[in-house]
Design a protein around this nucleic acid. Sequence first.
DNA 1: TCATTAACTGTCG
DNA 2: CGACAGTTAATGA
Length: 236
Amino acid sequence: MNRYVSSCGDCTNDACLIFRYKKEEGLSEPISRRRTFNCRKGQDFIMEGAPVNGLYFVLEGKVKVFMTGFAGKKQIIRLAGPGEIIGHRGFGTRDVYQITATTLDDAVLCHFTSEDFQEMLQLHPQLTFDLMHLYAKELDKSETKIKQFSQMTVRERVIDSLLYILRKFKEKAGYLQVTLSRQELADLAGTTDEQVTRVLSALKKEGLIHLSGKRIALKQVEILKEEISSHFFIGS
DNA sequence: TCATTAACTGTCG
DNA sequence: CGACAGTTAATGA
């Protein structure tokens, strides 16, 4: 934490989209104009409705990306960790962001202006292709998610959310690496914090998970997967 | 320590 | 299943 990477050339984050292009001809200029900064926990570095000013990469830490509905209801679109790109949906197509991005940890972020990133894409078709591939994958996941979401019960959505967190951030000493509040879990699963509390205590009673304050340990991952497996690979 | 917020539980529509 | 209310636990100034 708090380390400063002066150029992408020094960066060891190979999960980053531009990592493999960092030494490419012509990219050093826009890359050098990239801004790397520290962000304390709970900071909104992209805000819904604010003008698009480029895109961000997570260098360290964890981030939640969400949209706010009419009654102040939030829907967490995704969680993101090191190497992941944030704010790319607004890139080129929108003049204001339609999402808010908030740090879940103390985090380090890299920011590229739209102009610089556009320049990089124009210089390197392969980078553009990688980005297109990423967009396509996200769209695919998003469509699958929407279909599943409407067909799953609250309990299944909470389980799905827990497994998503496990896939994304793994675990440490048996516990999920991120500690989300009940409200945040609810925003992810598309329900209320009370329902999350109920599902979690039910799962605990059944011996499928262990709870220690905000920390959650998934004790029976296979059984949890099994419970939501009927919602995979269905429909067309 | 006290005050505020989050977590949990029961009940109702 | 979501909304509300009441209680308890956790957090932090």
